[in-house]
Amino acid sequence: MKRPVTIISIVLILLIAGFIYYRYFFVFGEGVKAGELNYIVKKGYIFKTNEGRLIQTGIRSGANQGSISSNEFMFSITDQRIANQLETSGGKLVQLHYKEYIGTLPWRGVSNFVVDSVLSVADNTTALPGSGVIR
């Protein structure tokens, strides 16, 4: 009688641990976004996190009237060093590498997209390396 309860308990614990890992720690996707850095702000009630917004260039709504196409990329930053670097880059063209998670954690930020590195920062009058965007 004691053995089935132990096996069921272990299986249940493993399933819960697997679900938590998949939901909050599994990197669902990663990539690079380029555009003009709109703002970086530190906010939160208990966990103060760095949040930012990037305005992507070249994205327009489709041919359908009334369709909505967002050219804003909302992201969170967990590394204070990266946040400090971006705070001085407001209004400049930046390329950011990010990781996408399925769920959010309060100490990681409010966005599913977490920036883990800054690839390049350029003035608006120059081109971003490798982006083909000249302003």
Rank of each mutant, 00 (worst) to 15 (best):
F73V: 07
S67E: 11
Y22C: 00
V115L: 06
Q56I: 08
Y21K: 07
V110I: 08
S67N: 13
Y21N: 07
Y39W: 15
G66W: 08
V5I: 13
L14Q: 05
R60Y: 15
G44W: 07
F26T: 04
I68F: 15
F75S: 00
G66N: 10
S70D: 09
L128D: 05
G31M: 08
E51F: 05
N50P: 00
G103I: 04
G91I: 09
T88K: 15
G58N: 07
L12R: 02
E51L: 06
P129L: 04
I68K: 15
E30C: 07
M74T: 09
T57A: 10
K92E: 03
F73R: 05
I13G: 05
A63D: 11
A122I: 12
S120K: 08
T88D: 09
E100L: 12
Q65N: 11
E72Y: 15
A63R: 12
E36K: 13
D123I: 01
V118P: 03
I102M: 12
T125L: 12
Y98F: 15
K92I: 04
W107P: 03
E100N: 10
R60N: 11
T104P: 01
N124L: 15
S131E: 03
T49A: 07
L96N: 05
D79P: 06
T88W: 05
R108D: 05
S111P: 01
R3E: 07
K33C: 03
A122F: 11
A63W: 10
D116V: 07
G29D: 13
Y45S: 13
G132H: 02
G132T: 00
I20S: 11
H97T: 06
L93Q: 14
R81W: 04
I7L: 11
F73C: 02
G90T: 12
H97M: 08
D116Q: 00
G132Q: 01
E100I: 10
D116M: 06
Y22V: 03
G109I: 04
Y39V: 09
F19G: 07
E72T: 12
